[in-house]
Amino acid sequence: MNRAPLRPVTADDIAAYDRDGIVCLRGMFDADWIDRMGAAVDEAMARPGPHAEEYTPPGGAGRFFGDLDLWQRHAAFRRFVFASPAAEIAGRLMGATRVNFLYDQLLVKEPGTAERTPWHQDQPYWAVDGWQVCSIWLPFDPIPAAACVEYVAGSHRWNRQFNPQHFSDGSPYAGTGLPPLPDIEADRDHYDIRRFDLMPGDCLVFQALIVHGAPGNRLPGRRRALATRWTGDDATFARRPGEVAIPTSDPGLAHGAAMDCDLFPRVWERPA
């Protein structure tokens, strides 16, 4: 299993990430990671954690399943955090000198799933401030663009944060004071929406303020993916008003403290 990316993160990759807020990196994880983590996903789905959710209503077709903090319960996910190339990929794209892990999120849409992932930004869900905050979305199955996450290119630079909503029923988070997100789906032609055909070993890396969502999976293949979240030098812990989803337990940090503690371990540092 490769510890370093299978190919270098290039200046073009960094420029695309900075400009668009999303970059697709091809062939960064070897087959051993994909095979082992794919098996670990199936094991984790058989033993859901306390924050697992089923987003497909009872009796609905397919299955939209999500779970959080798998690294705290499953050795394979913990190994991925500390031994995979993910932290280095995040650090090089963000231009960080150090990278801390925030949390992991498993998102699975079985064939025939109708439920969308609603349009949203990630960072308003999290108790984190800063620009060097990103996600790596790693699929374990071939994913045609028709089932892939979609991104509004450049929306990470709108200089606005929008109120989160619950994936389960679309209800807004309470007490945040943030405005609702514009109805992206009703006005798709107005936006530069990007999506990708992906193969196992490819990954998507996106800045935490980019607006994104995902269709259901009406295709015959599975759509298993792990999203890992990472922070860099300028990220700090933020005690926000209203509902906050992440972290799921108190890290014991003061408002404005660096994201550096047992719950948010430092995983990578740029070589001198």
Rank of each mutant, 00 (worst) to 15 (best):
N2K: 04
R3C: 05
R3E: 13
P8V: 00
D13E: 02
R19I: 00
G21I: 03
G27R: 14
G27C: 12
F29E: 08
F29S: 07
A31S: 14
D32V: 10
I34N: 08
R36C: 07
A40I: 08
A44T: 01
R47A: 11
P48R: 00
P48C: 01
G49S: 07
A52V: 06
E54V: 13
G59I: 08
A61Y: 00
F64E: 00
F65H: 01
G66I: 09
L68I: 11
L68E: 14
A76I: 04
F77M: 12
R78P: 00
F80R: 13
F80C: 14
F82Y: 14
A86G: 14
A87Y: 09
E88Q: 15
A90N: 02
G91W: 11
G91A: 10
M94H: 10
A96R: 10
N100F: 04
L102F: 13
L102H: 12
Y103A: 08
Q105E: 12
E110G: 03
P111D: 03
G112W: 10
A114N: 04
T117Q: 08
T117H: 10
Q121H: 08
Q123C: 06
D129P: 03
V133E: 09
S135R: 01
L138V: 13
L138D: 02
P139L: 07
D141F: 02
I143Y: 01
A146H: 02
A147H: 07
E150P: 01
Y151V: 04
G154P: 08
S155V: 10
S155F: 09
H156M: 04
H156Y: 05
R157H: 11
N159P: 00
N159I: 00
N163A: 12
P164I: 05
Q165R: 15
H166P: 03
D169F: 03
G170Y: 05
P172H: 04
Y173M: 12
A174Q: 15
A174E: 15
G175C: 09
P182N: 05
E185V: 01
E185Q: 15
H190K: 14
H190I: 05
H190N: 12
D192L: 08
F196N: 01
G201C: 03
D202G: 09
L204R: 02
F206G: 03
F206V: 05
Q207R: 15
I210W: 07
G213F: 07
P215L: 12
L219K: 02
L219V: 02
P220Y: 08
P220L: 10
P220G: 10
G221Y: 05
R222Y: 14
R239L: 14
P241M: 03
G242M: 06
A245F: 13
D250Q: 00
L253Q: 10
A257E: 15
A257F: 12
A258T: 14
D260Y: 01
D260W: 01
D262P: 01
F264R: 06
F264K: 09
P265A: 06
R266D: 04
W268G: 08
W268C: 08
E269P: 01
R270K: 14
R270P: 01
A272N: 07
